[in-house]
Simulated scan of single mutants.
Amino acid sequence: MVDNQACLSRSEQNIIDLNKWQQITDLIAELFGSASGTIVQLRENEFNVVVASQNKDNFLSRNDTWSWDIHSFCRKIIETKQQLTVEHAEMDACWKQSPLVAEGQIRSYCGLPIFWPCGELFGTLCIIDTKETEHSPALIKLLEQFCRLITADLKMLRDYQEIRDLALTDELTGIHNRRGLSFLGEQRIKEARRAKQTIGIVYLDIDHLKRINDRHGHQIGDQCIITLANVLTVNGRESDIIARMGGDEFIIMTSFSDEYDYDHHLEKLSLRILDCYKTAVSEYDTDEITSISYGHRTFNYASMTFLEEMIEETDQLMYRNKNSKR
């Protein structure tokens, strides 16, 4: 799913062409003869300028922000979910005391709400001016059309994200599948090299899953897989990449910035996962269900190879652990 709180102006998404949004705001400023045409996003109780018209007298720029707590025109639109038109701000009882008017340059404003396709508010499309302005009905209709174009772009972004999530998610457990691990893992390696971080990988395998399926049924086997996925999610960090490689094999991929004993941390994490898993499946009352094999490795940013090679090295350590039980 699309994160509605992610800052669109700073995101690395390439689905929405923000250059097209830039052209919209430039055209708005030109048609209205206004100081600023602006598309604003509301996120985390803060308004963020996604794009602003590039005319010389515009006092707003991309990534400018202001707090929700400020008595602002954009906030009024979000609260009412309706168009707001203020033609003479200094003469308007509601706005003449606003810091944006009393202490700032704004003298007129016209804005409309922008919605995500699900109906949630994205933000506003605004015309802001440093002079009193009368906004004609024809130009307001044009703004409404621009809002529909922006919403269509947001729908395209959401549709793409939902399709990608389906392709990268394991159907049984809801965590990432092997494709998801490959997509996110390669990005994580690039980030770690750039930030000079260390990456840790834990590879886990449910022992005797075929025997569990044969003796207790596939429903119990599937429940063991789901249980381990849940245990990994609970015990992993929010930033960790957790994936089911297929069958009974799972991976946690994590990164470290601080200097400390990474291998000791991964060993403690692995043992905690084993303990939590054993507790979770103890109701099935058979020892063979509670057994997991694991292996872990750390990779310094300077010695990282391709993701598949790093996984293969960790997989071998897991099999060494598995073979030691035989």
Rank of each mutant, 00 (worst) to 15 (best):
D3E: 12
S11M: 09
D17V: 04
I24S: 03
A29L: 08
S34A: 14
S34T: 14
Q41I: 08
L42S: 12
R43P: 03
N45T: 08
N48A: 11
V51G: 10
N55K: 14
R62Q: 09
I70C: 09
F73W: 05
R75K: 15
R75T: 05
T80A: 04
L84F: 05
T85E: 05
E90K: 13
D92W: 00
C94P: 01
W95T: 02
W95K: 00
R107E: 03
S108Q: 07
C110I: 07
P113E: 04
I114L: 15
F115C: 06
F115K: 10
W116A: 04
E120N: 15
L125G: 06
I127P: 00
T130E: 08
L139F: 10
L142R: 02
C147W: 06
T151E: 15
A152I: 04
A152Q: 09
D153L: 03
L154I: 11
M156S: 11
M156Y: 09
R158T: 15
R158C: 09
D159L: 13
I163C: 04
I163G: 05
R164S: 13
D165M: 13
D170E: 04
E171K: 14
E171R: 13
L172F: 04
G174K: 06
L184R: 02
R188Q: 14
E191V: 01
R194V: 00
R194K: 12
G200C: 09
D207F: 02
L209E: 02
K210Q: 15
I212R: 01
G217P: 03
D222R: 07
D222C: 07
D222E: 12
C224P: 06
T227L: 08
T227D: 05
A229K: 05
A229V: 11
N230T: 07
V231N: 01
T233Q: 10
V234Y: 04
V234R: 11
R237S: 10
M245H: 04
G247E: 12
F250V: 00
I252C: 10
M253I: 06
S255L: 11
S257D: 13
D261E: 15
S270G: 08
S270N: 07
S270D: 08
C276V: 09
Y277A: 02
T279I: 08
S282K: 15
D285R: 12
I289Y: 01
Y294A: 08
H296Q: 11
T298G: 06
F299N: 00
A302D: 15
S303F: 14
L307V: 06
E309T: 12
E309G: 07
D315G: 00
Q316D: 12
Q316C: 07
L317G: 02
M318K: 05
N321E: 11
N323K: 13
